[in-house]
Write a protein that binds this DNA or RNA. Structure first.
Length: 320
DNA sequence: CGCTAACGCAAAGACCTCTA
DNA sequence: TAGAGGTCTTTGCGTTAGCG
């Protein structure tokens, strides 16, 4: 289960925030104030360990890796998520940051978002990769990204009913130029030479046609049922009613889009990629929409430093 | 009928070219 | 000439068609 509070102090030191709100559209621009230092990294690591803990236990169990951190047998080679390639880490990074921002900042509607657990254990390909790597250290390969909804948080009312959830789509790019943005949001260009157009297979399309009740809620239900049936009894019961085929309980959906990565070379401070003064015209779903843009320098280093540091302390302490 | 080569698709970085 | 835009390349999976 995910238990660490969002590292608000470290976020505040690291990032400056420009929030805005129009109707049911919220926009939050986060920009680097300073490069990361050990204080910020340490705080991030604590949160990331909490976010990945459930999946780590799952995958290590699957691969029969000893849970003792001082195990330096072959089993230690493929630890989750340290052993994953950079591209995969970027995907995970976006999801964890989605969760962290959801918990740390005011989003559209000012709801109290709860993240009982991150759904990384459903990242089947990562599980397979860790399993294989532990039996054959040469089997390094790419890991497929996660399909579908990236991350889920819920709102729980006084009676313990789930009445709203937020589903996030996170994208990482090294340099957010206009053409990169268009390709991500509207899809890659295709068509005959000279008259190529965006093919509408981008994030807007995905968000517009997203399910009212996504698979992530089912996955969340499954994990809670398995790991914390008592603590989350009312939430589990509520999710059951929401997921029912016949006469399901209603639930509201908030869409979250996180664009994270490096700035374009000519970017001016405090400028956003997506307009914030009005709901973007490409958004057709009509639900609550929250967009977060996170613009940082040296993103690759930050990601590698965080992921390189996960559970490193535990291992170091154990070997003393 | 099952295997395999070939093609298609996707993500993301590298690389090339055009322009203010 | 730096930077943006666009295309190419790389890596790997999925699907399909052809062949023994």
């Amino acid at each position: 289960m995910h238990t660490a509070p969002p590292p608000k102090k470290a976020l505040n030191k690291w990032l400056i925030n420009y929030p805005s709100e129009v109707g049911n559209y919220g926009h939050l621009l986060l920009e680097q104030k300073q490069s990361v230092d050990t204080e910020i990294i340490d705080a991030m690591i604590q949160y990331f360990e909490s976010a990945h803990l459930d999946a780590r236990e799952c995958f290590h169990k699957l691969a029969r890796i000893s849970l003792h951190p001082d195990n330096d047998e072959i089993g230690c080679i493929g630890q989750y998520p340290v052993a994953l390639p950079l591209k995969t880490r970027k995907g995970l990074f976006g999801e964890v940051m989605s969760g962290m921002f959801t918990e740390a900042y005011k989003f559209i509607g000012e709801h109290e978002w709860v993240i009982p657990v991150f759904l990384f254990r459903n990242h089947e390909d990562a599980g397979q990769y860790i399993y294989t790597l532990n039996r054959d250290p040469d089997r390094k390969r790419e890991v497929l990204g996660r399909k579908g909804d990236d991350f889920i948080a819920i709102v729980v009312d006084q009676e313990g009913n789930v009445n709203r959830f937020i589903a996030g789509e996170a994208k990482w790019r090294g340099s957010w130029t206009k053409s990169v943005l268009d390709t991500v949001m509207l899809g890659p260009k295709s068509g005959p030479e000279g008259e190529k157009v965006h093919n509408n297979k981008g994030v807007w399309h995905e968000v517009n046609r997203a399910l009212a009740v996504p698979l992530g809620l089912e996955q969340l239900h499954t994990i809670l049922h398995e790991c914390e049936p008592d603590k989350y009894a009312s939430v589990i019961a509520s999710l059951d009613r929401i997921l029912a085929h016949r006469n399901p309980d209603p639930v509201e959906r908030t869409d979250l889009i996180l664009l994270a990565g490096g700035p374009a070379k000519k970017r001016k401070k405090a400028t956003s990629l997506i307009p914030w003064k009005d709901v973007p015209f490409e958004y057709e779903a009509g639900r609550d929409l929250q967009i977060v843009e996170m613009i940082i320098e040296d993103g690759d280093d930050v990601i590698n430093t965080i992921y390189g540091g996960l559970w490193a302390k535990v291992a170091a302490d154990a070997s003393i």
